[in-house]
Every structure is written in C-alpha cells, then in structure tokens.
Design a binder for these strands. Sequence first.
DNA 1: TGATATT
Length: 386
Amino acid sequence: MAVRLCDVASLLRSGSWAAEPWTGVIAAMETQLSNRLTCNNTSNGPSTISHNCSSPVESGSIEDSKTNLIVNYLPQNMTQEELKSLFGSIGEIESCKLVRDKITGQSLGYGFVNYMDPKDAEKAINTLNGLRLQTKTIKVSYARPSSASIRDANLYVSGLPKTMTQKELEQLFSQYGHIITSRILVDQVTGVSRGVGFIRFDRRIEAEEAIKCLNGQKPPGATEPIMVKFANNPSQKTSQALLSQLYQSPNRRYPGPLAQRFRLDNLLNMAYGGVKSRFSTMAIDGVTSLAGINIPGHVGTSWCIFVYNLAPDADEGILWQTFGPFGAVTNVKVIRDFNTNKCKGFGFVTMTNYDEAAMAIASLNGYRLGDRVLQVSFKTNKTHKA
DNA sequence: TGATATT
C-alpha cells in the first residue's frame, strides 16, 4: 500500500477552518444586527435614540489590517520562537507575539503574526490555516483591531436539558450573533451531557443580548430554565490553584540524564533500524555531548534531522506539514540551488524533544513523499543547537 | 466552569 504523505497531510487538513472573510463586513452590519437582536424581556425596550448615543463598535473596515493575523489553537508547548519560525517560512515578519498568562507565563494557545507584506499574510492563511501540529489543528485568520467590543464574549450556560446536542445549543444561541465556538461538557465516564456548556460569540454585545434573552428562559421543549452568564476568566483562578497547576505540570517530562541517555540509545536503534554497529558508545557519547543533553537544565537544546530525497519543488511548508504532527518543530529548512531556487534534494528539520524526533524519524524514514522515498535521520556530523 | 479568539 502506498499511503503518500501528501495525501495524509490533505486528510489532516480536510477539516480545515475556512478563512473568515467577514472580518471587514461585520462592522458594516452592526446597525442591523443591533436592531435585530433587541428582545422583549429587557428593561430598556425600543425607545428613542439617545442624543449622545455612540456605537459600542469600532467604525469601519478600513482600519482592519491586511498584514496582522491571529493564530488560534496552537499546541500548548509551542513557543513564540517556534511560532515565528513557522510563519517566517512564508515571508518577512514585522512582529510576532504568543499570548501568555500574565501570572504563570503559560501559553494561552493563541498568538499574533504581523507580516511586512499583505500578500504574505494572505499566503499564510491559505497555506497554514488548518495545519495540524501535534494534537492541534491551528486556525489562521485576519486579526481585527484590538477592541473592548470583541473581548469577553464567552458565555457559561447551565441547566441545559441533558438531551440537548451541541448543534441544538448553537441553534438556540445563533439567533443572537455569530458563534465562534461552542461546547457541551460531558461526564468523562458515561459521556452523558452534564447540562453545562460554553458559547463564545464574536462580539460582546451579542453575548450580552443572549444573556438578556436566554437567561432564566426555557429552551423549546425544556422543562427547566437555563442559566446564561459570562464565563469565568481563567486568570481568576486562585493562586493556590495556579501553584498546584504549575507543580503538577512541569515542562520537563524527563527526569534526568540517565533517562535521556537510555532514550537516546533507543532512538538510535529506532532511527537506524538496529544497525547499531555504526554507532559505538563513543559515538553516542559524542552525540550526547554535542547535543548538550548532559548539561543540567538543558532548556533550548534541540535535535536536527536530515531529510534526504526531497523533490525539486519541495518547500518549507511540506516539512512543517510532515514533521509537525510528531511534536515540537522549531525550524525547517529546504536547501536550494542558488541559481534555480529549486530544492537540491534535501533539507533539515529541528525538533525540541528526542522522543518526538525519534518517532518522526522512525515513521518517516523510508516513507514515500510524492514520488520519492525519503531518507530521514539525525544529522550526524554536527548538531544544531537552538 | 473547558481549553484557551484580540496583543
């Protein structure tokens, strides 16, 4: 059987997010939206327009940047440098920011990339939206100007009928605005709905209107009213909870040099199919030493992978797509002919963790990419350091 | 009351 990697990549991307072209349109729709959203059980019913009434919404799409992107659903362990490296493979970046929790420093799973050239931003949406990285499928779309009107639009809903599906939940709330995400929490054992969920609207006014109209109301067919309120902000956790979280999820999963050495030995076996004679203990020690993994607290060490037999038209994107699902990829490079700019048949991939790099090598060495069989191994003569 | 969609 010949499962081609490019086909796998296509499959992985088949559920990709549609880029959302409505960004510049929605502001223009604001007036109609506000009118349509007015419901009956509010205290301030239809009334004359206040003389100093100012729209809560930023005006006009002309301010919308065509270079600035928001990237959602990033892997938890992805760093700002990795984000920059990934998006820098498309074109020159003006700025890049991974959004982190102010207190814990942990990634909030999204970030911003601002390109120099709007064409590169468009290209990034077209080529990186839907890219699978580890367990996540990233979403790339235009960022709107930062505004209070698009913050805090996430709702917590409880008292839902246990039979209500996510689709039905969305149908109930979608009359009040554009839903970004929805979720119904389920019992981890039985899979049965816990009757609580989340609705993230595009805009806060939409969320506010949904609260006004749906809080305390019975959904069609329901016997009990639901409660709708703004969701808690995760940063409102107690400091004890934060400390506990930090303590229980250390960044380093590997206890020490001995385990690392053991794993290095294993991965060499995996990567080279047990042809261990090529790698004496000294050679292993050499790699170990060069890689710096015996240095205590070796944060920042990474593993360089040599990828041979790439097609002439291979680009960085195919390396990100091929290696990204195996773990943290910090950099990719396609070696090109200076004159023709065609790939010279090989490239390099830098990965952070040995086990992920080893798994990538074990899985991809001998794999068919397009009409070529890849040769994938650790780069042997010298080791790249991050 | 999740995982993390506006710096």
